[in-house]
């Protein structure tokens, strides 16, 4: 046990490297979208500095897209804040789940880790934490390149403006879909997997059809969680 209780510098480096490597495909996918957000931001009248500041401080792609879509000058701060709240509500569920894995993190590091908890970083951290303890070094590796790439991509997009093609035309948004579907399937041996999947995706689609926007994620997630909690336990 002493080996695991006192990690060596070598194992810290390995953990950090594993974290960096895990995010490389996600970075390749996220950068074109950061560029698009930067271009969209200057199109809406934000300065280059403001575009970069938004990506650095908010660091939540989906809510930035939705907010910029409805951005007017002067910026309606209350509406935009509420938009971010609704779009990012799922992160509340995700942080509750991730707290189980943060037992090895110093107390001060927990809010820092949660500040950087975008969908991809959360999903990779959860997947890592299932097989072995989640270390601060691995988590730092997840953030170390992903976060600067997001901010740099936004700045690049703001500088280049609207000369850029739409990443969707090249299918690049399907990188996220592929990563998420792949991660979903890594859980397929879990009891109640099919029930959760059906309840969540069915509810999300229904809510999306009635009321397009961010609510479908929260509604679907809650339906999947409730189905797992109150449905028949397949193998308990």
């Amino acid at each position: 046990m002493s080996e695991t209780s006192f990690p060596t510098a070598d194992s810290t480096l390995t953990e950090f490297r594993d974290g960096v490597l895990a995010t490389l495909p996600a970075i390749a996918a996220a950068v074109p979208f950061a560029v698009l957000i930067g271009a969209l931001a200057v199109d809406r009248g934000l300065s280059i500095a403001e575009s970069g500041l938004m990506s650095a401080l908010v660091f939540a792609g989906a809510s930035q897209f939705v907010a910029l879509d409805g951005w007017t000058l002067p910026a309606p701060w209350l509406t935009l804040g509420l938009t971010a709240l609704v779009v990012n509500m799922r992160h509340g569920l995700m942080s509750v789940s991730l707290m189980r894995r943060l037992g090895r993190f110093p107390r001060w590091a927990r809010p820092v880790a949660l500040f950087f908890m975008v969908d991809e970083i959360w999903a990779f951290a959860e997947a890592r934490g299932r097989g072995r303890p989640l270390t601060p070094a691995f988590y730092a590796g997840l953030v170390a390149f992903f976060y600067p790439s997001w901010v740099a991509g936004t700045l690049a997009g703001a500088v280049l403006g609207r000369m850029l093609p739409d990443p969707k035309a090249f299918g690049l948004d399907f990188t996220f879909i592929a990563i998420f579907v792949f991660l979903i399937f890594t859980y397929r041996a879990r009891p109640g997997f099919a029930l959760t999947l059906l309840a969540s995706s069915g509810t999300a689609v229904l809510v999306h059809l009635v009321w397009p926007g961010a609510w479908s994620i929260m509604a679907g997630a809650l339906a999947g969680i409730l189905a797992a909690a109150f449905g028949p336990r397949a193998a308990s």
Partner: peptide, 11 residues
């Protein structure tokens, strides 16, 4: 069930 529920609702 949370990871599967959230990821499925996103995609």
């Amino acid at each position: 069930a949370m990871p599967v529920a959230v990821l499925a609702a996103i995609v």
